[in-house]
Amino acid sequence: MKKQDFKLFPGTYLQGKWNGHKYKVIQKLGAGACGTVYLCQTFQGEKVALKVGNDSSRMMLEVNMLKKFSKVQGVKLGPAFVDVDDWKATSLKVFPFYVMEYIEGVPLSNFLRGKGKEWIGICTIQLLTDLEHLHKAGFVFGDLKTDNLLMSNSQVRWIDVGGVTAIGRAIKEYTEFYDRGYWGFGSRKAEPSYDLFAVTMIMLEMVHPNKFEKGAHPRRTLAAKLASSNDLKPYHSLIAGVWKGKFQSASEMKQALSYIVMKRAKGTPVSRKQMKAQKHSSEWGELLALSAVAGVFWGFSIFSFWI
């Protein structure tokens, strides 16, 4: 909201007043509502992402979340936390900043451009895997959106943990397009199902990259957008299920999604339901067949080295 009255040019050094660590600015990565993120280099020559801003309270809340979630149950969720400090600008004004792991990657939307539709399922499963860990730790991501996701080594990583909220509290940050309250699909209470709704919106965005507005009948708009996409066909009932509140946790949704994914990978369908699904969902995934053969349904690392 407030305007930032500093500019950091490449080559500038920035030193913390409490911890004394020095960072060299390499380039600007992006700017948001409460700060600007720069790619920097530590004294040891390591690349890091540094966010500097005005709102010291909000930045500190982000730091608290980063610390909590850089690693949950041994799994890397957000960027790893590095440092938090204040920087005295030449104007003598003091700006809070924090430093985190630099995640080298491309925005999800760019990544998907020109990629086969099988990536819809894969990215979504990756996302659900991370959410599963976060939910188990008692938190909801909140502001889940493609802007907050980077594809790094063919793996989805989230970069902005500012919206992470303890389960049972009020969602503190959201973006309308991904917010179930906006679409009339439920409350803004931090529940795992809140994130699952956002996941379905990310899936919709994968096939409608320009997004869309809710119009006079939000639910009907969504239904129409879902129906109009061929690439999402395999997931119709899954997505509609999420909207109906059928899934209470990321694990449940992931299970249902992997069932869809596996169905097609197997050569011999075992049930009628599966056969039906196979008919309209054609040849999407030699990849998946391969992984099925390997018997590694969850080992998505296989994709990353294979591609």
């Binding site: 409490w18 010291s56 309270s57 500190m60 809340l61 730091v63 608290n64 938090v84 400090d85 204040d86 003091v94 809070p96």
Partner: peptide
């Protein structure tokens, strides 16, 4: 709040 050292600030927020 802004003038507290980061560790204390973290608790206050």
């Amino acid at each position: 709040i802004e003038e507290l050292p980061p560790a204390t600030r973290s608790e206050v927020v």
